[in-house]
């Protein structure tokens, strides 16, 4: 098994506040990791360090064998192979759905427009909204927008996908349509790191579940073990809260 993402001894500060304490984590190719934890525990910051939307101050992060060295050009290369889906979708509102999807492949991979559009339509079909291709993001529901955001990331043919609370901004009735797409992706063998509170999703697809608190990884376990026999007291506390309702 090759390692897709390796994080070792990473520290990260916001000013003098330490958000990440000596975090280490390896994710193998094809592995699905769900990261959960209370808000402010550093889970989003951790996955945002992987594609350097946040810079870490010490420790090493390597993605697909390339170590992040702080050079802009190298980071752009890494980002092209690492797709990311945000809580607030972040589609580009001045472009149609199709334009959103072909932008990066055309600019960074120099894919010809026709080919890029064909690939985009293929992924839009996979997230089941090909008929919206020529609409603008503002005309779509939240769930549809998030599915487009996933398709847009997939158009770059990434080897790793990062999900940063992809369902937290959605109305409850739209959560499952997004989760279905993510489950499909997981079944196809995509390497995934998901920050989410959807414990059902974690149970269904995760190879391991990570619990973070106050900038540290507190517990790492396969889902069966994580949910039935959590070792750490804080994990048990957290689980009793999220699973209570």
């Amino acid at each position: 098994m090759t390692v897709a993402v390796s994080i070792s001894h990473v520290d990260k500060f916001y000013g003098s506040f330490k958000v990440l304490h000596d975090v280490s984590l390896n994710v193998n190719e094809g592995e699905k990791v769900v990261i959960c934890g209370p808000s402010g525990s550093g889970k989003s910051t951790l996955i945002r360090c992987i594609n350097q939307l946040e810079e870490h101050q010490s420790g090493d992060i390597a993605v697909l064998g390339r170590t992040i060295d702080g050079q802009g050009k190298h980071i752009d290369f890494i980002r092209r192979d690492v797709g990311m889906v945000f809580q607030n979708f972040n589609l580009f509102p001045h472009m149609t759905i199709l334009e959103n999807c072909v932008l990066a492949p055309m600019l960074t991979r120099k894919t010809p427009r026709e080919e890029a559009e064909a690939i985009a339509m293929q992924y839009l079909e996979r997230v089941r909204i090909p008929e919206q291709a020529n609409k603008y993001p503002g005309e779509l529901s939240g769930g549809q927008q998030q599915r487009v955001a996933i398709a847009r990331a997939l158009c770059m043919k990434p080897k790793v996908m990062l999900f940063d609370e992809p369902t937290s901004a959605l109305d409850p009735e739209m959560i499952s349509e997004v989760l279905d797409v993510m489950v499909g992706l997981a079944e196809e063998g995509m390497t995934m790191l998901c920050v989410t509170h959807e414990m059902g999703f974690a149970r269904q697809v995760a190879d391991k579940v990570i619990f973070m608190d106050q900038g540290r990884i507190v517990e790492t376990a396969p889902p069966e073990e994580f949910f039935s026999a959590p070792k750490n007291a804080r994990t048990r506390d957290f689980l009793s809260q999220v699973l209570a309702h």
């Binding site: 594609n51 752009d76 092209r80 192979d81 690492v82 972040n90 580009f92 990066a104 990331a153």
Partner: peptide
């Protein structure tokens, strides 16, 4: 951030 995450340069 979304543009960065897609690998677009400055």
């Amino acid at each position: 951030e979304a543009a960065k995450a897609l690998g677009l340069g400055y």
